[in-house]
Design a protein around this nucleic acid. Structure first.
Length: 443
RNA sequence: CGGGGCGUAGCGCAGCCUGGUAGCGCGUCUGCUUCGGGAGCAGAAGGCCGGAGGUUCGAAUCCUCUCGCCCCGACCA
């Protein structure tokens, strides 16, 4: 993408309404624009990151055996009356009437909708286990939206739903999501800690929130330090038996404010105690027959009809962008992890109009693009300083800096955004390294 | 939903108390000079001062209502 033809409305100054760093940076980098309280337009740069985050979620869901579908954002109130939630859900639910005066709602979640899909089509226990998910826009009419996309009213959420023949099988489904979540967040450069969460009326130990530690987090969290640096399980695991891995990550103390148990935390060795703030980016729970029973989602088993056991598993996709920025930024702007960066490389032409610079930049742009890299070619006639500042601001991981001075010796400069490291080397060498990877050039 | 605050140019703000022809910085546009870390000079465009009503000879300024937004708290993916 040539910057001169891209739509990137950067703000030099901080918008007054943005209080926290991710919100400020998302506005300043032209990722989003607020159109109402808690409702945002996703501008091209923001959308690119959103898509990359989605892609990772999709890949990890596929690995865990979940199948994607897409359900409507507007749901019939009657469906929610079946589960009893239409009356229970408060003002957070946006209620709408259509021209025939039928009650609709903009879905804040989709247990009823997916249960309806399930019961209409699945009749045999042989079709279980089943895990269906979607990535779609949800709406919760928050009394007080804030922190940009971290707590908007309209938000993009991945919600998966598992269907199993009994609780033991449902626990396995739960474990698959548990492990998938650790892998998902890890791929985005985040350290997510699973913390025991409130299970509501169901009880038991099957609900966890996945928390990213960040100073600006919404809630206080308490955990054993070792959990924070525990590596993600990766993909080489036995998806049919994950209990060991899950146990390993739930054995140590970890709880959010609401679930905090001072006595239990007291047993954590003093030097391992961690009190911090956190952002919830995922929430998984098992709720058994809560929806399947009233909505009559049953299958025929060998011994007759059984009501299916369900669980649901959410990831705040749009919220994740805020969380990633909270966890990865500096004074100059965003530092995108390579896996979700809107562009892989920025080619910076320091002297557009200079024949040698133009030619070298075009060559780099073409070669990197052909190699599958997502390239932002800064071909504008801004001054170098302004270009450096904006490329740092939007956080492209690698900046290929091409100017007349270096080029006179056949050299260009490669800067890594995360470390600030800048190295000068022969043009072709730098290009090769960017194309073949590892992208970091040797000192 | 309680408490507080703010709506004046694309962004950040002053002006309001004490009514009298709407300002500053950044950005934008033109030109010249610049050009390796957010350039300099000269010029220009851009605002029914959130909306409605009222008071007044006269309202951005005072009064009433209303809409929107932000912050603290309670609530929440």
């Amino acid at each position: 993408m040539r910057l001169s033809r891209f739509f990137l409305p950067l703000l030099k100054e901080n918008p007054a309404e943005a209080q926290i760093v991710s919100h400020r940076l998302m506005l300043r980098t032209g990722m989003i624009r607020q159109q109402a309280a808690g409702i945002y337009a996703w501008l091209p740069l923001g959308l690119k990151v959103l898509r990359k985050v989605e892609r990772i979620v999709e890949e990890e869901m596929a690995r865990a055996g979940s199948i994607q579908l897409l359900m409507p954002t507007l749901q019939l109130a009657d469906l929610w009356r079946e589960s009893g939630r239409y009356e229970d859900y408060g003002q957070e639910m946006l209620r709408i009437k259509d021209r025939h005066d039928r009650d609709l709602l903009y879905g804040p979640t989709a247990e009823e909708a997916v249960t309806e899909v399930f019961r209409a089509s699945v009749k045999s226990y042989k079709d279980l286990p089943l895990n269906l998910y979607q990535i779609s826009w949800k709406f919760r009419d928050e009394q007080r939206p804030r922190f940009g996309v971290m707590r908007g009213r309209e938000f993009l959420m991945k919600d998966a739903y598992s269907f199993d023949v009994d609780e033991a099988s449902a626990r396995k489904a739960y474990n698959r999501m548990f492990i998938a979540y650790l892998n998902t967040f890890s791929r985005m450069g985040l350290k997510a800690v699973p913390m025991r969460a409130d299970t509501g009326p169901i009880g038991g130990d099957l609900s966890h929130e996945f928390i990213i530690l960040a100073d600006t987090g919404e809630s206080a969290v308490f955990c054993h330090k070792d959990l924070v640096d525990m590596p993600a399980p990766g993909h080489d695991v036995d998806w049919n038996d994950l209990q060991g891995l899950v146990d390993q990550r739930t054995a140590l103390y970890a709880a959010t404010e609401e679930m905090h148990d001072e006595a239990a935390f007291g047993e954590v060795p003093e030097d391992k105690k961690l009190s911090a703030r956190g952002i919830e980016v995922g929430h998984i729970f098992y709720f058994g027959e809560k929806y399947s029973k009233p909505m009559k989602a049953t299958v025929n088993g060998p011994d007759g009809e059984v009501t299916v056991h369900m669980g649901s598993y959410g990831v705040g996709v749009s919220r994740l962008l805020g969380a990633i920025i909270e966890a990865s930024h500096d004074e100059a702007g965003i530092i995108w992890p390579e896996s979700v960066a809107p562009f892989d490389v920025a080619v910076i032409n320091l002297r557009p109009g200079d024949e040698a610079c133009d030619a070298a930049c075009e060559k780099a742009y073409a070669a990197l693009t052909a190699a599958g890299r997502d390239v932002l070619y800064n071909d504008t006639d801004e001054r170098p300083g302004a270009k450096f500042a904006s490329m740092d601001l939007i956080g492209i991981p690698w900046q290929l800096i091409i100017g007349p001075k270096g080029l006179a010796e056949g050299k260009v400069e490669l800067k890594q955004r995360a470390t600030g490291e800048r190295q000068t080397a022969l043009f072709d060498d730098v290009l090769n390294q960017l194309i073949t990877g590892p992208k970091k050039i040797d000192a």
